[in-house]
């Protein structure tokens, strides 16, 4: 996993690509490095991640439904109502997932096989509309076009700034959660990548270490 021969082209510091990560943000100089095969190239510097008081730390370890994971990357996104983070998780069984982190609410999702994309077009899913995913009926709770604010660690795609991400969040009455991600390549926003999961409470994940806060005992 950690290839000692990969170094940041900008500052020369060692760069670690975790799992099947495609890009890594250099810890020392903030440059985004992208790996294509054996080659490594520089994309550019990223904006800093803004402190939003999240108790989650990069490198934190926990477990979800008894499968251990490590937080290897983070993406911070901005939309009309503010910022939120998406933490990239690598599970012990080799799979990956995302932990959405927004104002004390957390949702853990994994990519699911693209089923019938009909009815999942961005232009057709408005607040309150229904969609059927993983044999459940979910309702749209949010739709947005977010811009990329900052990143840290390893990510499974090229973390370039100026990218705008359209996405739709859906939930059902039992706490199941889904995010439909419309990538940049999908200009018509018709074929989203589907992530499915549920809301989680932080204690359930047993994350360690957690951020420390002045005035609070961990």
């Amino acid at each position: 996993m950690a290839d000692p021969s990969i170094h940041c082209p900008e500052c020369g510091a060692p760069a670690t690509f975790r799992g099947t990560a495609i890009s890594v943000v250099c810890e020392y100089c903030g440059s985004t490095i992208v790996r294509t095969g054996a080659d490594v190239r520089l994309i550019g510097k990223v904006s800093a991640v803004l402190d939003q008081g999240s108790p989650i730390l990069l490198g934190g370890r926990g477990a979800f439904e008894r499968v251990p994971f490590e937080i290897v990357g983070r993406l911070q996104l901005r939309h009309a109502r503010g910022l939120w983070s998406e933490w990239y998780l690598l599970f012990a069984d080799g799979s990956d997932g995302w932990l959405a982190d927004a104002q004390g609410s957390y949702y853990l999702v994994r990519k699911v096989a693209a089923s019938d994309p009909r009815g999942l077009e961005f232009g057709h899913l408005w607040l309150g509309d229904e969609a059927r995913l993983q044999e459940r009926s979910l309702r749209v709770v949010e739709r947005r076009v977010a811009t990329y604010q900052g990143a840290e660690g390893s990510l499974p795609f090229e973390a370039t700034p100026e990218r705008g991400y359209a996405s739709v969040d859906l939930m059902d009455e039992d706490g199941r959660f889904a995010t439909l991600d419309y990538s940049d390549d999908d200009a018509a926003r018709e074929r989203p990548v589907v992530y499915f999961g549920r809301a989680v409470e932080l204690p359930e994940l047993g994350l360690r270490p957690l951020r420390r806060f002045e005035g609070w005992d961990g």
């Binding site: 943000v25 250099c26 810890e27 020392y28 100089c29 903030g30 440059s31 510097k45 990223v46 800093a48 991640v49 402190d51 008081g53 730390l57 990069l58 900052g150 840290e152 660690g153 951020r211 420390r212 806060f213 002045e214």
Partner: peptide, 13 residues
């Protein structure tokens, strides 16, 4: 620097 940022959160908020 991103380096400063990623280590920033190691300090207590």
């Amino acid at each position: 620097g991103q380096g400063a940022a990623s280590r920033l959160f190691r300090e207590p908020g």
